[in-house]
Design a protein around this nucleic acid. Structure first.
Lengths: 202, 202
DNA sequence: TGCAGGACTTGCAGACTGTGCAAATTATGC
DNA sequence: GCATAATTTGCACAGTCTGCAAGTCCTGCA
């Protein structure tokens, strides 16, 4: 598997097992994506992936609930994490700033995962249906999760305002990521630019 | 199948067959959703659906590419339709107005399909994973499709501006639909409200 | 060293989705 | 009615995914 781990101090048996599991998961992913990119999505059957990852087909499903899950990147954020990030902001901070701060945190993670994303990005480009199939995070789910927290912040004038703020914030992220991919400009700068546009009106 | 058709004049054999096909498709959908709502998603196998719709399992797949497709509503718009709607607007009209007009057209369709949506909405509520699985329209796909057309319109200051406008417009639609569902207010009024918020800044 | 217990892996059987192909059935135009 | 085209269907088969039970590996501890 060849994974370098920078052990820094103790590690409980529990942590150890979790780390091993995560590593193996990633190794299986890599095998899956490699096959799909080299020989086509058709060739990436569970049987082939398992063989490449040196596990039995049955074991594959101990690591992934579906084949597609192995062919897309691990999401860099989950709805409940966003809620947590948001709640950590000072309570009297205006919504707009809070959201901008939260999204910026996510953006940093995206940037850090940038390199790992490359093969997955290419695969996604060749097979857009994968994205839909394995849609990591449901937009509606996000809104639902952080809606109340957003609504409670200073500066929110109504329920629709809250929803638009959420969608707009993610729109800013998506736009900035896309633009950064195409032009190479710094992600964080583009993100600020996007938020400025949102704040001042489209 | 019991479908009332208001024949108004001639109908080419081609049209006739298409209509029949659409009707049958809808009938199969209804059977599928009824089973899923009555007996649970588990019970809605292709075999059961086919039996209820009085067709063979093989025929089911002549109408739907996947089982999930039968369990979600027919999308009320497609990306290329949006492009068409957009291109039909006067060329010197400011982006914002153009987009607002396009989205309003879509909103009208949504409102018209409102009644049919009810069972599907309930099913989606009970099984959110369906939405992700059968994600009718990929967000990225929409942006990609109408991006250039938006960018070419008067009032667009840059590529990110264009993307934000697109995402924001759909955000307005989503927010308005959601709000209308919850409060019962008129969809079109809410939509205008949302666009005003976008235009003046969040 | 060796063993008891837990965690992980695997094989197997089986339900289900989805597809190609060719035969059977049905509809349509003349 | 009949020739033809469209639709439906059966059949075989590849592939995904699950439950279950047996096998294997690892760990700590006597």
């Amino acid at each position: 598997m060849q994974i370098m781990h920078t052990v820094q101090g103790m590690e409980s048996p529990q942590e150890r097992r979790e780390r091993r599991r995560a590593e193996k998961r990633q190794a299986i992913r890599m095998a899956a994506v490699k096959i799909a990119l080299d020989d086509g999505l058709e060739a990436a059957t569970v049987e082939a992936i398992s063989a490449a990852a040196d596990i039995s087909p049955r074991t594959f499903f101990n690591y992934f609930a579906s084949k597609e899950e192995a062919l897309v990147m691990e999401p860099v954020w989950r709805p409940d994490e966003l809620l947590e990030l948001l709640e950590r902001r000072p309570g009297d901070e205006p919504v707009f700033q809070s959201l901008q701060a939260v999204i910026r945190t996510v953006a940093v993670r995206v940037r850090q995962a940038w390199q790992d994303m490359k093969p997955f990005g290419e695969l996604r480009r060749r097979h857009p249906e994968l994205a839909a199939r394995a849609a990591a995070v449901d937009e509606t789910k996000v809104i639902e999760t952080i809606f109340e927290a957003v609504r409670a912040r200073p500066g929110v004038t109504g329920r629709m305002h809250a929803r638009l703020l959420i969608i707009g914030s993610f729109g800013a992220l998506i736009s900035a990521v896309q633009e950064s991919l195409e032009t190479g400009e710094a992600l964080e700068d583009l993100l600020d630019e996007a938020f400025t546009l949102l704040e001042n009106g489209l």
